[in-house]
Write a protein that binds this DNA or RNA. Structure first.
Lengths: 339, 339
DNA sequence: TTGTAAGCGTTATCAC
DNA sequence: GTGATAACGCTTACAA
């Protein structure tokens, strides 16, 4: 009935030794076609299933640890798709865990992954992670890639979108195409590297424009609700000419808040990540596209390479973001607010 | 340096036997406080880490298989949060894989999970899964819960939202509160059980109303893009009085398409799942809330119970959906009583 | 309370 | 080409 069928049973049934049976299963070693057939037949009739756990005791395991802050944020979801599909397509399984963006959870999960002997680790570190995390992972000595968020000062392999460039693209569009003189950056955790980098890009774009542009930045959670709150707060004062949001959820919240205040289209809004919903919102959302899926695939491929012995250290890799211009930053938006 | 420290090393260092060391780690057996301290100290100084894989060779493993169609669909993301957090909080790890809603992938992944000796299985089956899947899982003999989608005729434990009720709530609102005489159901895979059940609910609501209401249903993918296409197709003809969409992504696409045709608000739209973006869309989306997270938690808890030996078969569990009324279904007649 | 020893199912080494 | 045999790191009766 159960998985009580072992390699020994197969070997006995096929009239060979465990070794030969093992050779057939793993494809290793030299086995005559005749015996191979026989073994395969036995496997089939006996209903044998390979025991990865037992095998891992001798050879390297085929399980990969994947750590993310929240599975439900659309962007991370896309990244996960990329990571997971790449690994399973190569015969590896992903042990996915979410830290809820909390450092203590992260430490705990890291330990559990260690106990599970994962062969590699892909991690989007929790906000606030520092050298301690890097050191812990480093001393552990398992191939690792940091994803989407990097740790300041770390030299570990990193795959992410070029945040500085993303901020630049957004601000440049506002300043040059729309002649904005005041810009607000909304959202993201205060110390998040993505936020800081994007703001750098924003400032650079402003500086390059040669015009005097005022910049205000506000932190917030990365949720629709937070965007709604931020939008209402914003509309209590004088609106900036343009708003850059830390992600699309916030942007949708801000746009909605302005709409509720009867000021739809009163300022230009740019989101970040270009998730699926961006194109369907009203107004449709201009957004900095980052292609999370590609990010995930890239990271996974890098890890697979290292595991396969391609020793040469994985180098960091930045993908190029792209600005997708839609209605939310346009001047052509009619005022559809409820009168 | 690496994880070369084994229980033997710990035992030697602490001056005890493997057994005692093992007792300390697992909390099993009787050990004097003195020796326990000593062992723990050794573990610390030696940097020992438990080897779950090796342990699983003797006792039951602590890894759970989780199969979903797509990680990136917001609703499934919520379900996963519930499943994963519940399991990790209990010391189990989730081996998550996505089938891309394809049967061959699903079969392959099922096999891999088996080889990894998972202690239990939570699965949202791919569209089109049938008795074959149930039989395969059943003969495998591992505690299993079907999640969110059930297999027709299967008696395996199932945790999901009451789809019939959801369809009823949506249609009842359209028919009674808005006096709709024509309704379209848009989206979902043709043979999906959720779709079929919801349509049952819709028909029941129509029948109960005693009025003659025409019902049209169209299948589609569950994406924003598909919603856009469906919305444009819809607006080429005469619009129905009300539209029920298979999920919120489709609903947002439909609403957007109408907007693009200059017919925003020309019909009432109801979405499904009530994902975060629903409240921020313009118009904000009326939606049937299903609480995916709770679903995931419930399923995980049921599995944990079975694993812990609470033999009595997990019974199926349906959660009650709730209609969240917002702007997209328009001019509300004050009738908030779809209790 | 602690130690001895027999597995768990696989792979690696080295003979034949 | 094929087959003994020794690991791999841990759990768990059974003794002491």
């Amino acid at each position: 009935m159960g998985s009580r069928v072992t390699l020994i049973d197969v070997a006995r049934h096929a009239g060979v030794s465990r070794t030969t049976a093992s050779y057939v299963i793993t494809g290793t070693g030299r086995v005559s076609t005749a015996t191979r057939e026989r073994v395969l037949a036995s496997i089939d009739t006996l209903g044998y299933v390979y025991n990865e756990g037992a095998a891992s005791l001798r050879r390297k395991g085929r399980t990969i640890g994947v750590i993310v802050p929240n599975i439900d944020r659309p962007f991370f979801g896309e990244v996960l798709i990329g990571v997971e599909s790449t690994f399973t397509d190569s015969g590896y399984m992903s042990l996915m865990v979410s830290t809820r963006d909390q450092l203590d959870q992260q430490a705990r999960l890291l330990r559990m992954l260690r106990e599970h002997q994962v062969a590699a680790l892909a991690i989007i570190p929790a906000t606030g992670s520092d050298r301690d995390l890097v050191n812990a992972i480093h001393s552990w000595d398992v191939p690792t890639v940091f994803l989407s968020r990097y740790i300041a000062g770390s030299t570990e392999p990193y795959v992410g979108s070029d945040e500085v460039r993303g901020g630049y693209l957004a601000a440049d569009h506002l300043v040059r195409a729309h002649r904005c003189r005041s810009i607000s950056y909304i959202g993201g955790p205060e110390l998040g590297v993505a936020r800081i980098d994007r703001l750098h890009g924003v400032r650079r774009a402003i500086a390059e424009s040669g015009t005097g542009v005022s910049l205000v930045d506000v932190t917030s959670e990365s949720t629709v609700e937070a965007g709604l709150r931020a939008g209402h707060a914003l509309s209590r004062g004088e609106l900036p000419d343009g708003v850059i949001c830390h992600n699309d959820s916030i942007a949708m919240g801000v746009a909605r808040a302005l709409y509720e205040q009867g000021r739809a289209g009163a300022t230009r809004i740019i989101g970040y990540d270009d998730v699926a919903a961006a194109q369907a919102s009203v107004p449709s959302l201009t957004s900095v596209a980052t292609n999370g899926r590609l990010l995930g695939e890239t990271a996974a491929q890098a890890l697979l390479a290292v595991i396969s012995g391609a020793e040469p250290t994985v180098r960091s890799h930045l993908t190029e973001p792209r600005l997708v211009v839609r209605e939310s930053c346009g001047d052509h938006i009619e005022d559809r607010s409820p009168s």
